[in-house]
Every structure is written in structure tokens, then in C-alpha cells.
């Protein structure tokens, strides 16, 4: 790497407690912008918890306490002047189970634009254009252009998950967080989502939590291995899988536990 990479996300001394249970311990990470970074580790290691810190959706539950800092493109998201609404606009999230809203395909895609339009209403033409662009980028436009008024929850799971990605794009996010986005999908659906991640790579910081080690290996540039709330190792994916530097990483990727 010739020039120093721009960091999409950095965390420094991040600790998180659920009540009295500490789920994250002193997490320090630098996630490069424009790449795909995967997070692996056995169940309960804190990878989903960490992911949910980046858009502060963790804080829905009153018993969560966080210390340390998270910077997104240089700005600490725990600063008091940060607006949760603006933060979540620039940090999109894709969930484990596809969760399109119980509205039409069209309304799902323009949902973000509608809620973020202060005062005035976005024009019909603007919305139409945004729908075509977003669905085009996730490869759904051809299939769905005549079915925009169909209820999104009736689509196939793969289409639902693509739609969940498409609805983030009109907000022009910096970061896309994905929480095991393929675990509800079959082989074809998984491949389609992975292909889509490669399409989107470069423009967004993509961070994906996965249970599937081969997916991390196939579909990410860098890989983070977590265990019991700590980051054990963070390197280029290739290096992490070929020459893990920590014995715990080595044992995990060999399948000794997890």
C-alpha cells in the first residue's frame, strides 16, 4: 500500500456493558474507507454488538453503557452535538433477516428521502429518479420496475435483502453495516448479495459480520477476528487466513472451536 489509507471508521478504547456484563473490551480498530471488512468470531464474541455501536442503534435499550470513542470520517459519533438522525443517515444498516417495511417496494426505497426532507416534500420526479437509480444499483430494476406498488414483504427473500440495501442508497451513506446479511438466503441469494457488495465497494465503507468463514475469505479485503469481546487480530483477509499471527485465530479458522 503506497499511500496511507483513509479510515472510514476508527474506534479507540471502546468498552460496552449490557447492565453489568461487559460485552466489548477496549476495542481499537481502523476500518479503511472504500473496502469490505469482515468481522468473524464465535457466537457471543461481540461482533454484532460492535456493529450496532456504529449507528448507535444499541442505545434503544436503556441498559447499554458505552465508553471510548468511535470516529466516522474523523467525527466522534458520541460527541454531544452529533444528531442521531444525521448519523443514521450516513451509516446504513442491513439486518440478518431481510426486514423491508410493510409498505410498497417504491415506498421502501423512498422512505429515507421522505423522512429526511425537512419541511418540504420531495417532488414526484425526484423520487421516481431515486427509485430507478437505487433499484438499478442493486440489480432489481429490471425485475421490479413494473411491480413497484407490490408490498415489499411479499418479494422473495433475496429480493427483499437487495431492497434493504437499495433503500440505504438514496441517503448517500458513507458506511454500510451488514449483520450476517446472507444467513437467511440460499446459495444463489448469497452469491447475489456478495456480488452486490463488490459492486458497491469503493464508494462505501462496508463492514460485514459473518458466521461463515468462507464468506469472509471470499468477500472481504480485510478481516477482524474477535473473541470474548476483544479484537484478537485485524489484517488483510488473505494474510489472516494464510498466516494467522495469534494461535487463537489459527485454531478458530481451523475449526477447533466456535
Amino acid at each position: 500500500m503506497s499511500d496511507a489509507p483513509v479510515h472510514g471508521l476508527t474506534t479507540r478504547g471502546l468498552n460496552l456493558w449490557y447492565g453489568t456484563f461487559q460485552a466489548l473490551l477496549d476495542v481499537n480498530l481502523e476500518i479503511p474507507h472504500g473496502r469490505i471488512t469482515s468481522m468473524i468470531g464465535p457466537s457471543g464474541c461481540g461482533k454484532t454488538t460492535l456493529l450496532r455501536c456504529f449507528n448507535r442503534v444499541n442505545e434503544r435499550y436503556g441498559y447499554v453503557k458505552t465508553t471510548g470513542e468511535i470516529r466516522i470520517l474523523g467525527k466522534n459519533i458520541y460527541d454531544p452535538d452529533v444528531s442521531l438522525i444525521e448519523l443514521r443517515k450516513s451509516v446504513g444498516m442491513v439486518f440478518q433477516r431481510p426486514n423491508p417495511l410493510p409498505l410498497s417496494v417504491y415506498e421502501n426505497v423512498v422512505f429515507g428521502l421522505r423522512i429526511h426532507e425537512p419541511g418540504g416534500r420531495p417532488g414526484r420526479g425526484e423520487l421516481d429518479a431515486a427509485v430507478e437509480k437505487a433499484l438499478g444499483e442493486v440489480g432489481l430494476w429490471k425485475d421490479l420496475k413494473d411491480r413497484l406498488q407490490v408490498r415489499a414483504t411479499t418479494l422473495q427473500l433475496e429480493q427483499q435483502q437487495k431492497l434493504c440495501i437499495a433503500r440505504l442508497l438514496p441517503l448517500k451513506p458513507e458506511v454500510i453495516l451488514m449483520d450476517e446479511p446472507c444467513s437467511a438466503l440460499d446459495v444463489g441469494g448469497t452469491r447475489a448479495i456478495e456480488d452486490l457488495m463488490f459492486e458497491l465497494r469503493g464508494r462505501y465503507t462496508i463492514l460485514i459480520v459473518t458466521h461463515n468463514m468462507s464468506q469472509a475469505r471470499r468477500a472481504s479485503d480485510e478481516c477482524v477476528f474477535m473473541l470474548l469481546g476483544r479484537v484478537i487480530e485485524h489484517r488483510r483477509t488473505e494474510d489472516l487466513f494464510l498466516t494467522p499471527s495469534d494461535p487463537r485465530t489459527a485454531e478458530y479458522i481451523e475449526g477447533r472451536y466456535g
Binding site: I85, R88, K89, F95, N99, P102, H116, L171
Partner: peptide, 13 residues
């Protein structure tokens, strides 16, 4: 609850 999370994660109040 996934509907609530979806909307909140998109920045809805």
C-alpha cells in the same frame, strides 16, 4: 421489532 429497527436505522424519529 425488526420494522422498528429498520426505520430507526434509516434515521427515522
Amino acid at each position: 421489532d425488526s420494522y422498528r429497527e429498520a426505520a430507526l436505522a434509516l434515521g427515522a424519529t
